[in-house]
């Protein structure tokens, strides 16, 4: 636990924060291409954030301090979470303080505050969004936990660091349970980030919206922080997926070359999977809201099956 490690952890947080809008832009470009539209610039999310930060904040008359605290809390929690996931190096000093269960807890802390703040102003859309968000989360969160538990039982540890290095230590091995866990994780990723079978990130004013309904009353820098935080959340889920299912390239060393190589690999994975996400979203259709519990229930049960299969097959 040297100062270098702390520096690397801080560096990873900054890297995550800076990269997140780029990932959003990249996915957006691919979606536009696939839908035969002219794509916006890759830098478009940054421009939007910049513009929002300079706008004045308009608060609803009925808003309590909760609404003003939430954007900072949300962004802080997401930034922190991004720094906890082994994106480039595995030996992060904070990894011992926050294991995967605490990580899920941290994400749900942010979510509970977002939902509460949505109910704060007291509009029809706000409470609708909060209700739907909690509906999605009460199935997605246990599914995510079960995915983690599968991998935790494989490696006999709930610490992200040992979950990742455990795979590396045993060399190449095909885990059948990971197939189930991977599918479940993908389904949760789509649901938690408001992606297409569950929610559409691109529309407002649609009666089916979830995430957008919650953040209607934010403006200016508050909105910017929330948008940025949701971009970060997507990045968090991506890097979680990489760390757990495609852990090759992660380094334990503090040598410059190792880190550089891992960083390049990480960016490469993001590039490919970002495009993959856009493809997935384009080929699937948005579900009715009442199909969503079914979708998420399926994800949860798949994750449960994954952990069962681990115990059944002994691998």
């Amino acid at each position: 636990m040297t100062p270098v490690n702390w520096l690397l952890q801080g560096g990873q947080e900054i890297l995550g924060i800076l990269l997140a809008p780029l990932l959003m832009g990249w996915v957006g470009i691919w979606r536009a291409w696939l839908q035969n539209r002219r794509a916006p610039s890759l830098m478009q999310p940054y421009r939007q954030l910049f513009k929002l930060f300079h706008k004045e904040v308009v608060l609803a008359e009925t808003a309590s301090p909760l609404l003003r605290v939430t954007p900072y809390l949300l962004f802080g929690c997401m930034g922190l979470t991004a720094s906890l996931i082994p994106m480039v190096i595995t030996d992060l000093p904070l990894a011992g303080a926050v294991d995967v269960i605490a990580l899920v807890g941290l994400l749900s802390l942010a979510r509970v505050f977002l939902a509460l703040a949505a109910m704060d102003v007291g509009t029809a859309f706000g409470s609708l969004g909060a209700r739907r968000e909690m509906l999605v989360s009460f199935l997605a969160e246990p599914a995510l936990l079960m995915v983690f538990f599968t991998i935790a039982s494989l490696n006999a540890s709930t610490s992200l660091r040992f979950m990742v290095t455990g795979f590396a230590a045993r060399g190449f091995y095909l885990y059948p349970s990971l197939a189930f866990a991977g599918v479940a994780f993908l389904m949760v990723l789509l649901a938690e980030n408001g992606r297409i079978p569950v929610d559409n990130p691109e529309t407002h004013l649609e009666l089916t919206m979830i995430h957008e309904a919650m953040i209607l009353e934010y403006s200016g820098r508050h909105l910017a922080l929330i948008e940025w935080a949701s971009a970060l959340k997507l990045l968090i889920y991506f890097s979680l997926g990489f760390a757990l299912f495609l852990p090759f390239g992660l380094t334990d060393s503090q040598q410059g070359w190792g880190i550089l190589g891992a960083l390049i690999l990480f960016l490469l994975k993001l590039t490919v999977m970002g495009a993959g996400l856009a493809v997935l979203e384009t080929v699937s259709a948005k579900q009715r809201l009442f199909r969503v519990p079914e979708y998420l229930g399926t994800a949860f049960l798949l994750a449960v099956l994954a952990i069962l299969l681990h115990y059944l097959l002994g691998s």
Partner: peptide, 19 residues
Amino acid sequence: PFAQQLLDLFASLLLLIAF
């Protein structure tokens, strides 16, 4: 051993498809 693991994987995929 790789072929053995592959067999388990295929079987699990079969189960996944059944689900």
